[in-house]
């Protein structure tokens, strides 16, 4: 569902990245040139190919953050499965959150092709050393949030993921293609929930409008800071990990969403929204970047609760993982002995 757009995370501090400074001469300039020529030709980089150390590190960071986002992203929606108001919605929501687990899994597995282990990546997340998409640090307060998240958050993710499906690193691109196929029902489900609420009782309509009012601006922030303020963008564009800048993607998302809101009779909480007849773009008001930096810096509405929940699941599950591993070992040796 969400994504690890370089801009929506703070630049990792050197202490969290360990030895991130490249060794002098570690990347043979001739090989770097050959690599960048491959990229320019539109070739796909695979796990066993030579790659600059920085490319490898950037991908590990971007992919693992994306995977963490999918898994943390299960929590805000998982919060409403037990209260889903009809069986069809209960099944759909459960299936959607299950898909998010699967997406996290695909991307973790893709990251592991770069020579890291998922367990170590998870440790980094739980120790607060890794980032995940800012959007999941907001709480889900009503059933209508399920509609707003599906429509806006998954909608934003689709804009980004469609682009990432052409990323230069093969395992990442392939994971994205699989995810894109599954993602469309998520957005459609959310939009349908909101449309039904907006056409429902007065209480339902108010619930829907309130949810949209709360989720609109954080969804725009998902695309990360403006390109001029985004330190990783240029490099990721040059390496074709990204193909488009943050601002362009954000504008595309706004252009898609405004008519969708109008179609179901809901307003967007931006008094400055205005169609520009020359460009065809829906121009929008200023984003509160102070809020954004607070949230990704760890001071959002429920950053602590999200990590605490993931930590609890991991710790509570340790005896289970150990048991299965122990059984596997016992039976390996039993077979050998026989």
């Amino acid at each position: 569902m969400p994504f690890s757009e370089s801009g929506c995370f703070m630049e990792p501090t050197t202490k969290s990245q360990g030895a991130s400074a490249p060794h002098a001469g570690a990347d043979d300039p001739a090989r770097v040139t050959a690599f960048e020529e491959r990229i320019a030709r539109g070739e796909t980089i695979e796990p066993k190919d030579w790659m600059p150390e920085r490319y490898r590190k950037q991908l590990i960071r971007m992919m693992s953050q994306h995977a963490h986002s999918e898994v943390v992203g299960m929590l805000p929606e998982g919060n409403w499965i037990t209260r889903a108001p009809c069986l069809r919605r209960k099944l759909s929501l459960l299936a959607k959150v299950q898909d998010e687990a699967g997406h996290g899994l695909y991307i973790y597995c893709g990251t592991e092709t770069l020579g890291v282990e998922r367990a170590d990546l998870v440790d980094q997340l739980l120790e607060g050393k890794a980032k995940y998409s800012s959007i999941f640090n907001y709480p889900t307060l009503t059933w209508a949030d399920m509609g707003a998240i599906g429509w806006l958050v998954d909608g934003a993710a689709i804009v980004n993921q469609t682009m990432l499906a052409k990323a230069s690193y093969g395992p990442y691109a392939r994971a994205m293609i699989r995810i894109c196929k599954e993602e469309n029902f998520h957005k459609r489900q959310g939009y349908e929930i909101l449309a039904t609420l907006a056409a429902g009782t007065r209480g339902q309509k108010a619930m829907a409008q309130d949810a949209v009012n709360r989720w609109w601006w954080p969804s725009l922030m998902m695309f990360g800071p403006s390109d001029k303020d985004s330190p990783n963008s240029a490099e990721l564009l040059r390496w074709r990990v990204k193909q488009k800048g943050n601002d362009e993607l954000r504008q595309r998302f706004v252009n898609l969403s405004v008519p969708q809101a109008q179609a179901i009779g809901l307003t967007l909480p931006d008094p400055d929204l205005k169609m520009n007849p020359e460009t065809g773009d829906w121009e929008f008001g200023p984003i509160d970047w102070e809020e954004f930096y607070q949230v990704i810096g760890g001071n959002g509405p429920c950053n602590r609760e999200r990590i605490a929940a993931r930590r609890a699941a991991h710790e509570d599950g340790q005896w289970v993982r150990e048991a299965a591993a122990a059984y596997g070992e016992k039976h390996k040796t039993r077979q050998v002995a026989a």
Binding site: C109, E112, E117, A119, D120, V122, D123, L126, E127, H314, Q318, R321, E322, A324, A325, A326
Partner: peptide, 11 residues
């Protein structure tokens, strides 16, 4: 945080 004994191999 994780001990080696709770890690599962990759398939």
């Amino acid at each position: 945080m994780s001990q080696a004994r709770d890690r599962w191999p990759l398939w």
